[in-house]
Nucleic acid binder design. Structure first.
Length: 362
DNA sequence: CAAGCGTGGAT
DNA sequence: TATCCAAGCTT
């Protein structure tokens, strides 16, 4: 049984060092730091979950231009929200953001609540995100513990064990709680994230510039890279699928909406089948007049938890009526504002340059 | 508590 | 090229 780590500094000294560093070296011009409203902070925090700042910025700008406030987001169709989320990944974030906006209109009079409890009750907002929203947009005291803070605090105190384990996470929350001030909450919160993102990085920490180098236990041992401990790894399983590229006489492609949850939930995708037989059986029922072409070469798409081996299966049909509710014809030349799975989007953009009936190269 | 969820950056 | 994993949350 490991002892709970003692703080390396009194809270006041820690805050003083951190904020002094932040004033000179922190980030002060991120898009969501301008016109800092609870709504803008909320959207940014959701987009930033498991996603790097440079990736988020263009998505954030487009999202804000289209949905400047909670009301605009609540009134939108989910399809349009997912359209703006296309390529960002973890689409449950977009679905939950949209759901939460409607809940805020229905239950909070259209104003984002700025208390941790009320925020964490909304879909997609957990303990750390709720803390970040409160601290940054209201200035009230709230504690965060995101990946940056976990990394910095585990190194500073050489906290052993993977932070995914409850006991380890509890220690880190206790340390975060200890250091959090009652003043300058937006700056302190941003400073903790900046420290982890710009100095106390995963692979190449810059301890020479760190305001805590002299008290950092991991640094004293020369073992910065060993903290935080990484998640126990498992082999990636491979799943196999066929994607039907059914085109009609006008060059439009048949899309299918994915189930509301799970992989690419709510997004539009090419119809997928486990094998050729299942695909053929579907065609026999829904598009008996179609002509199957030679499959295009398979490619592998790697996800966090599995590999997906995709074989694109081109087919043609003159016309197909009654596509039903969860299907639509889609013209790659004039795309609709709908959410498209990234590999599907890539395949469809290929259609614009290559002929399906004469695939290029060996 | 483990599994599930995406994409792109860094090494 | 392969691997790890980033401002986590939900089931």
């Amino acid at each position: 049984m490991t002892e709970a780590p003692a703080p390396v500094l009194p809270a006041a000294a820690f805050q003083r060092r951190l904020l002094e560093w932040f004033d000179d070296h922190g980030r002060h011009d991120l898009p969501w730091q301008q016109a800092r409203t609870p709504y803008r902070v909320w959207v940014s925090e959701i987009m930033l979950q498991q996603t790097q700042v440079t990736t988020v910025i263009p998505y954030f700008e487009r999202f804000m231009a289209r949905f400047p406030d909670v009301a605009a987001l609540a009134e939108a169709e989910q399809d349009e929200v997912l359209h703006l989320w296309t390529g960002l990944g973890y689409y449950a974030r977009g679905r939950n953001l949209h759901k939460a906006a409607r809940a805020i209109v229905a239950e909070h009079g259209g104003e984002l609540p700025v208390e941790v409890e009320a925020l964490a009750a909304l879909p997609g907002i957990g303990r750390s995100t709720a803390g970040a929203i409160v601290a940054q947009s209201s200035g009230e005291r709230a504690v965060i513990l995101d990946g940056n803070v976990k990394r910095s605090l585990s190194r500073l105190h050489a906290v052993a064990g993977w932070p995914g384990r409850l006991a380890v996470e509890r220690r880190l929350w206790a340390l975060a709680e200890h250091y959090t001030p009652h003043e300058r909450l937006p700056d302190y919160t941003q400073a903790m994230m900046d420290l982890g993102a710009t100095l106390c990085r995963r692979g190449t920490p810059e301890c020479r510039r760190c305001p805590f180098a002299d008290v950092c236990v991991a640094h004293a041992r020369g073992e910065e890279r060993r903290f935080p401990e990484s998640k126990p790894k498992k082999a990636l399983p491979t799943r196999v699928t066929r994607m039907l590229l059914l085109r009609d006489g006008q060059g439009r492609v048949l899309l299918e909406q994915r189930p509301a949850s799970g992989l690419w939930g709510g997004l539009w995708s090419l119809p997928q089948f486990d094998d050729e037989a299942a695909l053929q059986a579907w065609l026999d029922v829904h598009a008996p007049a179609s002509r199957l072409e030679a499959p295009r070469p398979a490619f592998t798409h790697v996800f966090s938890h599995f590999r997906l081996e995709i074989t694109p299966q081109p087919a043609r049909i003159e016309r197909l009526d009654a596509v039903g509710e969860a299907r639509r014809w889609y013209d790659p030349e004039s795309p609709d504002a709908i959410g498209l799975a990234a590999p599907v989007k890539a395949l469809l953009s290929e259609l614009r340059t290559f002929s399906l009936s004469a695939p290029p190269g060996p």
